[in-house]
Computed example of a mutant assay.
Amino acid sequence: MNLLRDEDLAAAFDHASRSYDTLVAANPGYHAHLRRSVRRLQLPRHGGGLRVLDLGCGTGASTAALTRVLPDAEIVAVDASAGMLERAAAKRWPPGVRFVQSPAERLAQAGVRGPFDAVFAAYLFRNVADPDAVLASVHDVLAVGGRLAVHEYTLSGRAVDRAVWTAVCRGLVLPVAALLGDGDLYRHLWRSVVQFDTAGDFADRVRDARFTDVRVLPLPGWQTGITHTVVARRPAVGAEAVR
């Protein structure tokens, strides 16, 4: 099963941006789950004095979760899709929020530089061509001791969870997306979950990228076993050598 990549994927997200918020709003718990994952960063002082990178912000759902949980943080929100980013930037935001168009692999070229106290990445890693390269970039822009939370469709590895995901996509998501003219994108999104790492495999990938304190945390509702938060930390100087 072939996946969309790079320019084709960005163009598909551009086209789908007009109806994206409507579709995700139909997903029970979508926004509450994002806020739960942000809270799992365990940042102090409502984010006061902290810089947070929202990597793969889309139309701003993850940005909204960050501003709800961390209203006093400075947030830099990045996405590769001009269409999605236009929708996000058009919404009302606190003064500490800034949007930047850039692929996750080319942050420095877009002027996005650390150190950040935390990176939040929702529904991103299975949509990039080289997840390891993106994790390396995230590691580099994080401050020492900085925190990472990845909110992602990463299946548990159980056959029943894969079956539920496929049933929801084929029975509901794909028919609606086809009517909207976005069938190619949502077929990609279904396949990307099936073909991506399990939650445990992704946690191992994060460890291999020199992060520590890696944990896999489930999310409730119908997405139990389908969506997880993977949290980690950039270790203190010298700690990487003794892992």
Rank of each mutant, 00 (worst) to 15 (best):
R215S: 07
L219N: 14
P220H: 11
T229R: 11
D213E: 13
R210L: 11
A203I: 01
A209E: 10
D208S: 14
D208Y: 03
G221K: 08
P218T: 10
I226A: 05
T224W: 03
R205Y: 07
D201Q: 15
T227Q: 08
G225W: 01
H228M: 00
T212R: 15
I226E: 04
F211P: 15
T212Q: 14
T212W: 07
G225Q: 02
T227C: 03
T227V: 12
V230M: 08
L219T: 13
A203R: 09
A209H: 05
T212Y: 03
D204M: 10
P218Y: 05
F211V: 14
Q223V: 12
D213G: 07
D208P: 00
V206L: 10
V206F: 09
A203L: 02
D208H: 13
V230E: 11
V214K: 08
D208T: 15
W222L: 08
T227F: 00
H228G: 00
V206T: 13
D208Q: 15
T229C: 12
R205G: 06
H228D: 01
F211I: 14
A203T: 01
P218A: 07
P220F: 04
G221A: 03
V216A: 08
L219R: 05
W222Q: 07
H228L: 00
R207W: 07
R205I: 05
R207C: 12
V230K: 08
V216M: 10
Q223N: 08
A203P: 00
L217S: 05
D201A: 14
A209P: 09
P220C: 07
V216S: 09
D213Y: 00
R207P: 06
F211M: 15
R210G: 02
G225A: 01
A209N: 09
Q223T: 12
A203E: 02
W222R: 09
I226T: 04
I226F: 00
R207M: 12
